Simulated assay, not measured.
Amino acid sequence: MRALRILLIVAVVLGGLFVAADRLAVNYAESETADRIRTSQGLDRTPEVSIHGFPFLTQVLGKELDEVDVALADLTATAGGNEVNVTEARAELRGVRIDGSFSSATAARADGSARISYADLTEAAPGEAEVTYAGPERAAKGQVKVSGPLVKLLEDADVPLPEAAKALIGDREVATYSTVTLVEGATVRLKAESLPKLPLPGFEERLRKAVDLDLRIEGLPSTITLDKVEAGETGLRFSGTGEGVRLTG
């Protein structure tokens, strides 16, 4: 019995050492992978990498990781020269194959997503245009509300207004519902459904410069194509998939 107890104690100790070694190895791998992703994707900050599955060391020996999650907060998108903060971008990678030299890896499939708040969209909008939640019915159609003082929006869009026209418009606010679409997998487009009419040459075209936006989202792997957008109460969420996504190298 004493010998059996000793064997059990040794097994538990060795098992604990293996688990500890396994966790140390995965922590090192996550840190190294994050640094390589930052370099290969040209990011200005290091992402958070989580490698799932146990044991990790046996996955490495087989040169295939079951699941790797990559998250990066506070990215920047561009909107006509303005910048907009991307709250978070995530990529969930499955079936990650490691090459023979352990210098690069490719995921069989990846699901990517990004979130932008209405406050950050408003910050990026020209002038005093404000982007807000349009309510459940409009949101179900992929629409947001864009509003602002009409005179100010026109001035920001470089639309010349005679003083008489300014006096006529006064403090009038303009509010329109804009449909959100995805263009070429990484550009988010907000296009107004309708705009007020005024007897000024080129009025609608110039006003659209103030209320229509194109946002280019950076930070996701280039092989992930965003193809879905949802308008929630706090902001917009974009998602998409990719195959054969190169993780590092």
Rank of each mutant, 00 (worst) to 15 (best):
R2L: 13
R2E: 09
R2K: 15
R5P: 01
R5A: 14
R5I: 12
V10Q: 10
L14M: 14
G15A: 07
G16E: 12
V19W: 15
V19A: 15
A20N: 06
A21F: 13
A21N: 13
R23A: 10
R23S: 10
V26R: 12
V26K: 09
N27Q: 13
Y28G: 13
Y28T: 12
S31F: 04
A34H: 03
S40L: 03
Q41A: 11
G42L: 07
D44P: 02
D44V: 05
H52N: 12
G53H: 05
F54R: 01
P55K: 05
P55V: 00
Q59G: 06
L61P: 00
G62Y: 08
G62I: 00
K63R: 15
E64N: 13
E67K: 12
E67D: 14
D69P: 00
A73D: 15
A77N: 10
A79D: 03
A79M: 11
G80V: 04
E88Y: 02
A89Q: 05
R90Q: 15
A91F: 03
L93E: 10
R94D: 14
G95T: 06
V96K: 05
R97V: 10
R97K: 14
I98R: 08
D99P: 06
F102D: 08
S103N: 13
A105Q: 11
A105D: 10
A110E: 08
D111Y: 08
S113V: 01
A114Q: 06
R115S: 12
R115M: 08
I116R: 07
I116Q: 09
Y118D: 04
A119N: 10
D120I: 01
D120A: 14
L121V: 04
T122R: 04
A124Q: 07
G127S: 11
E128W: 01
E130Q: 15
V131K: 09
G135N: 02
G135P: 07
G135H: 05
P136Y: 02
P136I: 05
E137V: 09
E137K: 13
E137P: 04
R138G: 01
R138Y: 06
K141H: 09
K141G: 08
G142V: 04
G142M: 09
V144G: 06
L150W: 06
L153D: 08
L153K: 10
D156T: 15
D158E: 15
D158F: 11
V159F: 05
L161K: 06
P162L: 02
E163P: 00
A164Q: 15
I169V: 14
T176V: 15
S178Q: 10
T181P: 03
V183T: 12
G185H: 11
V188R: 07
V188N: 05
E193I: 00
K197I: 00
P199L: 09
P199M: 08
P201G: 07
R206I: 01
A210C: 06
A210M: 07
L215E: 09
R216M: 10
I217F: 12
I217Q: 08
E218Y: 13
L220G: 04
P221D: 02
S222Q: 13
T223G: 08
T223N: 14
I224F: 04
E230S: 13
G232S: 12
E233W: 00
L236F: 03
R237V: 05
F238C: 01
S239C: 03
S239T: 04
G242A: 08
G244L: 04
V245P: 02
R246A: 11
R246W: 00
